[in-house]
Write a protein that binds this DNA or RNA. Structure first.
Length: 378
RNA sequence: GGACGGGUGGGUGAGUGGCUAAAACCAGCAGACUGUAAAUCUGCCGCUCCUUGCGGGCUACGAAGGUUCGAAUCCUUCCCCGUCCA
C-alpha cells in the first residue's frame, strides 16, 4: 500500500499536523486543495501550481465523465498523465452536482438521473458508477457518491438524505472492495461523506454509520452552503469528535480565508474551495490586509503591489494599477495573475497554519484572521 | 443649387401624441461569490430636495417658435450630418 496518514503534532485545540502519503507524493496536512473541476485549475498552468507548492488538487467526476469521458481518460493513461499533473489528485464524486444542478436531476434510491448541462443528454450516476468513473480516472482519493442538500432543510429531508447517503456509501464501498479483490491493488483511497444538514444528531448518526464501513478517511459534506459560519463549525465539531484520530478528515467545499483556521482547530485536515480561483476571476484578491476588489476605481493610480506583504511572483512584479487596468480591459492575463496570487495566498495561509499548530498558537492565528477580514480594506 | 434620409441620455441605438427621466446593449460606479453550468451574477447609472416614498422639484430627445388638456413623437423656420442628382 502506497497510502498512509500520520499525525505528527497536535495542539491545545483539536488541530493536527500530519502527512498524507499517496502514490503521487506526500501531502502535508492540514492542506487546501485548489479546485480543478475539469482537469485544470482555471487560470493556472500546472507549472505554476507546482511552483506555488500545491501538493494535491481536486477534480470532478461528473464533469470529467461528461467530457472528455472517463474511458477516454483511462485510455490516455489516467487523469495524472492526461492532464500532466504528477502530484496527488482527489476526485469529488458528483455528489455536489446533486445540489448545484438540482434543476437538472432527479434523485432516486438507485442513484441520480442527470440531464447533461452540456447537451441535455440523460445520464445515470449511481454510487457504483461514480466509483467506477473515479477508478478509471485513477485519482488518488475518490469520494463516495452522496446526496448533498441545501441549507436550511427540513428535518425529514435531511433524514432522507442521510439514509440515502449511508446506503450509497455502503454500495460504493462494496463495489470498491469487489474491484480490489478482483483486480488487486487499486492505487486509490475511498473516503466516506457525512451528511445531516444542520441537525447535530443526524450528523452524529451519519458519522457512526460510515465508521462501520471502515473508510480510510472521512469527509464532512453539505456544509458552507448558506448557513452561518458558527453553525458550520458546530456541525463540524459534532462530527470530528466521533472520527478516529488516525484517519484524515476532509471538510468539503470550504472556506473563506478567515474561516480556514477555525476548521483546522476543530480537527480538519483537508479542505477545498473554488473561492480563491473564482473570486480571482471576479477581481477579488485575498491579501494580508483583507479583501482587495481590484476593479475598484480607487486603485486606478495605486503603484503598490496587490499585497505589500506577499512574496508571490505577481506581487513582486506588478502593481494594483496594472491589475485593475487588465480587469477593466477584460484581458485574460487579469484572471491568470489574480488566480496565481489568490492560490498563493491560500497555500501560504496553510503553511502558516501548519506552523502555528507546531508552535501551539493556532488560536491566536485564527482570531487575527477574523480581525483582519472583519472589515474590507479601504 | 436640387432630391431623399437622418440628428435621442458618456457611446451604439429603440421609441412616431399620454403608460417616457425615455427600451436594450456598451462604457462607468458599487457589491456578491464557500466539494465550479460562474472570465459569472446583482444593484446604481440627468440634476436636486427631503419626513427615502412605486415621494417632490427642475432640466432633457439639434435650435427657436407653434398646435394640443398633454409633444422626443404633429406643424413652421433655421442649423448640422449622410447618400444621390446637377
Amino acid at each position: 500500500m502506497n497510502f498512509s496518514f500520520e499525525v505528527t503534532a497536535t495542539n491545545p485545540t483539536s488541530a493536527r499536523r500530519g502527512v498524507l502519503s499517496t502514490p503521487h507524493g506526500a501531502v502535508q496536512t492540514p492542506f487546501f486543495m485548489p479546485v480543478g473541476t475539469q482537469a485544470t485549475v482555471k487560470g493556472l498552468r500546472n507549472e505554476a501550481l507546482e511552483e506555488l507548492g500545491a501538493e494535491i488538487i481536486l477534480a470532478n467526476t461528473y464533469h470529467l465523465y461528461l467530457r472528455p469521458g472517463h474511458e477516454a481518460v483511462r485510455k490516455l493513461g489516467g487523469l495524472h498523465k492526461f492532464m500532466s499533473w504528477p502530484r496527488a489528485i482527489l476526485t469529488d464524486s458528483g455528489g455536489f452536482q446533486v445540489f448545484s444542478l438540482s434543476e437538472l436531476r432527479k434523485v432516486t434510491d438507485e442513484g441520480v438521473r442527470f440531464r447533461s448541462h452540456l447537451d441535455g443528454s440523460e445520464h445515470m450516476l449511481t454510487p457504483e458508477k461514480a466509483a467506477e468513473i473515479q477508478l478509471a480516472l485513477g485519482s488518488d482519493i475518490a469520494m463516495v457518491f452522496d446526496e448533498c442538500i441545501e441549507t436550511p432543510a427540513p428535518r425529514e429531508k435531511a433524514e432522507a438524505a442521510v439514509k440515502r447517503t449511508t446506503e450509497w456509501a455502503g454500495r460504493a464501498r462494496k463495489y470498491f472492495r469487489e474491484q480490489a479483490s478482483r483486480n488487486g491493488e487499486l492505487g486509490q483511497w475511498q473516503f466516506g461523506i457525512v451528511q445531516g444538514a444542520t441537525f447535530a444528531d443526524l450528523r452524529r448518526e451519519s458519522a457512526r454509520q460510515l465508521l462501520e464501513m471502515d473508510f480510510p478517511g472521512y469527509a464532512v459534506g453539505g456544509l458552507a452552503v448558506g448557513e452561518p459560519h458558527s453553525l458550520t463549525c458546530e456541525m463540524t465539531a459534532e462530527v470530528t469528535a466521533l472520527l478516529p484520530r488516525d484517519r484524515p478528515r476532509y471538510l468539503m467545499g470550504v472556506g473563506k480565508p478567515e474561516q480556514i483556521a477555525d476548521y483546522v482547530a476543530l480537527g480538519i485536515d483537508m479542505m477545498d474551495c473554488v473561492l480563491p480561483t473564482r473570486a480571482a476571476r471576479h477581481a477579488c484578491l485575498y491579501t494580508s490586509e483583507g479583501r482587495v476588489l481590484i476593479k475598484s476605481a480607487r486603485y486606478a493610480a495605486d503603484p503598490r503591489p496587490p499585497d505589500p506583504n506577499c512574496s508571490c511572483s505577481v506581487c513582486r512584479r506588478y502593481t494594483r494599477a496594472y491589475l485593475r487596468h487588465l480587469f477593466a480591459a477584460g484581458e485574460l492575463t487579469a484572471a491568470i495573475l489574480a488566480t496565481h496570487h489568490n492560490v498563493h495566498f491560500y497555500l501560504d495561509l496553510m503553511r502558516q497554519i501548519r506552523e502555528a499548530i507546531e508552535f501551539g498558537n493556532l488560536a491566536n492565528f485564527s482570531s487575527e484572521m477574523h480581525a483582519r477580514y472583519a472589515v474590507s480594506p479601504a
